[in-house]
């Protein structure tokens, strides 16, 4: 499902001294079945942008098209609930939303809200638990007995249980160990291919952007300042640093090599590409020496 923004602005607490414009006339499209990464400095409006994807916030002006449903300032809340089944949001530190007395009930909470019977919901809960690679015997335990990483998985399972078409992830791997991070990102990439999901990922991990995203949106002060493929966005290292953003470690390494006289056709994004490029350089040098 594609999501289109047309001239979307959002103002927090309008007409008070605390008024703050978080989004300024944003126009963009998140394509169907794409993996879009949203990057930007803290306070650039990413979270506000995210909440528009699920109509949790309605634009102060402009239109958001979620699928073919148009959301404007005047859209009433009545019609939004069913929309929310189609868009799942995993908020930052989603383990904070756990509340039920068993893991099973917590995962089943979403499906039940959208009309699944308790039996159906329990079955979905079981499937989802397997999906996020947790053992089945924790189904009847309290979510508060689990470790932080396990709680995170249960919370994510609770969102996946809605079986959404669009999955919005707000820093899903923040605070996880490197292995947990990798597994989690792998899971999302796998899901996207299998279920034909559209994924929107907010992250500060540029490696994840380089590895998984096919589209990058860069935000600053409530505006989109650049969008395109990861290769296009990461090409200008200086510009990104100006925006207080990073590039993947491999790109950074290549950038430093370039300063010392090595030539790259285009800066590599991943370790594999970097290794290939360097191997090519050695080959070329070997040929010259022959």
């Amino acid at each position: 499902m594609a999501i289109t923004f047309k001239e979307v602005s959002y103002i927090y607490q309008p007409d008070t001294p605390f008024e703050f414009q978080a989004l300024q006339k944003i126009t963009t499209q998140i394509k169907d079945e794409s993996f879009t990464a949203l990057i930007g400095h803290t306070g650039s409006g990413k979270s506000t942008f995210l909440q528009h994807l699920d109509a949790l916030l309605k634009p102060t002006s402009g239109t958001v098209l979620i699928g073919d449903t148009a959301i404007t300032h005047e859209t009433s809340n009545k019609h939004l609930r069913l929309l929310r089944k189609r868009v799942g949001i995993v908020f930052q530190f989603p383990e904070k939303q756990l509340f039920a007395d068993t893991v099973e009930k917590d995962i089943a909470f979403g499906p039940e809200n959208f009309g699944s019977s308790p039996e159906q919901a329990a079955q979905i809960a079981r499937q989802m638990l397997k999906l996020v690679k947790l053992p089945e015997d924790i189904l009847n335990r309290s979510p508060f007995e689990l470790s932080g990483g396990q709680m995170r998985r249960v919370a994510i399972a609770g969102v996946l249980a809605l079986q959404p078409e669009v999955l919005v992830l707000d820093e899903p791997t923040a605070g996880l160990d490197p292995k947990g991070r990798q597994e989690m990102m792998h899971l999302f990439a796998e899901l996207q291919k299998r279920e034909h999901l559209t994924i929107v990922l907010v992250t500060h991990q540029m490696e994840d952007v380089a590895n998984y995203a096919d589209q990058v949106i860069v935000m600053e002060h409530g505006k989109i300042v650049k969008e395109g493929t990861p290769r296009y966005v990461f090409a200008d290292v200086k510009w990104l640093r100006d925006k207080q953003l990073d590039v993947p470690a491999s790109t950074e390494f290549a950038f430093e090599m370039q300063k010392r006289g090595f030539l790259f056709d285009q800066l590599p994004l991943t370790e594999a590409e970097l290794a290939d490029d360097i191997a090519d350089m050695f080959k070329a040098r070997g040929k010259r020496n022959e």
């Binding site: 909440q51 699920d54 949790l56 809340n77 609930r81 929310r84 089944k85 868009v87 799942g88 949001i89 908020f91 930052q92 989603p94 904070k96 939303q97 509340f99 909470f109 979403g110 809200n113 959208f114 609770g158 969102v159 809605l162």
Partner: peptide
């Protein structure tokens, strides 16, 4: 944030009678 997370999971805070409304507060 928690309210938003539960709304995203299908809780509709604005509707229902007194009893269902109170029940909806538990997940917050």
């Amino acid at each position: 944030t928690i309210m938003n997370a539960q709304r995203a999971r299908g809780v509709d805070f604005g509707t229902g009678n007194l009893f269902t409304r109170i029940k909806k507060i538990i997940p917050i």
